[in-house]
Deep mutational scan, measured.
Amino acid sequence: SKIRITWGDKTWEWDGDDEEVWKRILEWARNLGDEELWRHVKEWVDK
């Protein structure tokens, strides 16, 4: 399956939905430097 994140007018996609993928997404969000996006992603990961 895919994980799709839409933020503003951008959309990103990742293949898979296991823990490793979420770790990569969390790292990606942090590297993007958008605090609010990172917080949202972290909330999803922690669920």
Score class of each variant (00 low, 15 high):
Leu26Ser: 04
Arg4Ala: 09
Trp22Val: 08
Thr6Trp: 07
Ala29Arg: 00
Lys10Glu: 11
Lys47Met: 12
Glu36Ser: 07
Asn31Val: 11
Thr6Asp: 06
Ala29Asp: 00
Trp44Ser: 03
Asp46Ser: 10
Leu32Gly: 05
Trp12Thr: 06
Lys2Asp: 03
Trp7Asn: 03
Lys10His: 10
Ser1Val: 14
Ile5Gln: 00
Lys10Gln: 13
Trp22Lys: 10
Gly8Cys: 06
Thr11His: 08
Trp44Gln: 07
Trp28His: 02
Trp22Ser: 04
Thr11Ala: 13
Leu37Glu: 02
Thr11Glu: 11
Lys2Val: 09
Gly33Leu: 08
Lys47Phe: 05
Thr11Ile: 14
Ile25Thr: 01
Gly8His: 08
Arg30Tyr: 14
Asn31Met: 13
Lys42Pro: 00
Leu32Lys: 07
Glu27Asp: 14
Ile3Asn: 03
Ile3Phe: 02
Lys42Met: 13
Asp9Ser: 03
Thr6Pro: 02
Gly16Thr: 14
Glu43Ile: 06
Trp22Ala: 05
Thr6Phe: 11
Arg39Thr: 11
Trp28Ser: 01
Ile3Lys: 03
Lys47Pro: 03
Lys10Met: 14
Asp34Val: 06
Ala29Asn: 00
Thr6Ala: 08
Arg4Lys: 15
Glu19Gly: 11
Lys10Val: 11
Lys10Thr: 13
Val41Gly: 00
His40Asn: 09
Trp7Thr: 03
Val41His: 00
Glu13Pro: 01
Arg30Glu: 08
Glu43Ser: 11
Arg30Lys: 12
Lys2Asn: 05
Glu43His: 12
Leu26Lys: 05
Val45Ile: 14
Lys10Phe: 10
Glu13Cys: 03
Asp34Arg: 01
Asn31Glu: 14
Asp34Asn: 07
Ser1Glu: 14
Arg4Gly: 05
Glu20Trp: 10
Ser1Gly: 15
Val41Ser: 00
Trp12Pro: 00
Glu20Gln: 13
Arg24Gly: 11
Asp17Ile: 10
Val45Ala: 15
Gly33Thr: 05
Thr11Asn: 06
Asp17Glu: 13
His40Gly: 12
Ile5Lys: 00
Glu19Ile: 14
Thr11Ser: 11
Asp34Thr: 02
Lys42Tyr: 11
Glu43Leu: 07
Arg30Thr: 13
Arg24Ser: 12
Lys10Asp: 14
His40Asp: 08
Glu35Arg: 03
Asn31Trp: 13
Lys42Asp: 04
Leu37Ser: 01
Val41Trp: 02
Asp46Met: 06
Val21Arg: 02
Arg24Cys: 06
Glu20Met: 11
Glu27Val: 06
Asp46Ile: 06
Ile25Phe: 03
Asn31Phe: 10
Ile5Val: 10
Ser1Asp: 11
Arg4Leu: 13
Trp22Tyr: 13
Arg39Leu: 13
Glu20Gly: 14
Ile25Asp: 00
Glu20Tyr: 09
Ala29Thr: 03
Ala29Gln: 00
Lys10Leu: 14
Asn31Gln: 11
Glu13Ala: 04
Ser1Phe: 11
Trp7Val: 07
Glu35Ile: 05
Leu26Cys: 06
Glu19Gln: 10
Asp18Leu: 13
Lys42Thr: 13
Val21Leu: 09
Val41Ala: 01
Trp28Met: 02
Glu36His: 10
Gly33Phe: 08
Arg4Val: 14
Trp7Ala: 04
Val41Gln: 00
Trp22Asn: 04
Asn31Ala: 15
Thr11Lys: 03
Trp38Ile: 15
Ile5His: 01
Gly33Cys: 06
Val21Ser: 08
Trp28Arg: 00
Glu13Ile: 07
Ile3Asp: 00
Glu36Met: 06
Glu35Cys: 07
Gly16Ser: 13
Trp44Phe: 14
Asp34His: 04
Asn31Arg: 09
Gly8Ile: 06
Lys2Met: 06
Asp18Ser: 15
Lys47Ser: 09
Arg4Phe: 11
Gly33Pro: 04
Trp14Ser: 01
Glu36Cys: 08
Trp22Gln: 05
Glu27Asn: 08
Trp14Glu: 01
Ile3Ser: 01
Trp38Asp: 03
Glu19Pro: 15
Thr6His: 10
Thr11Pro: 00
Trp44Asn: 02
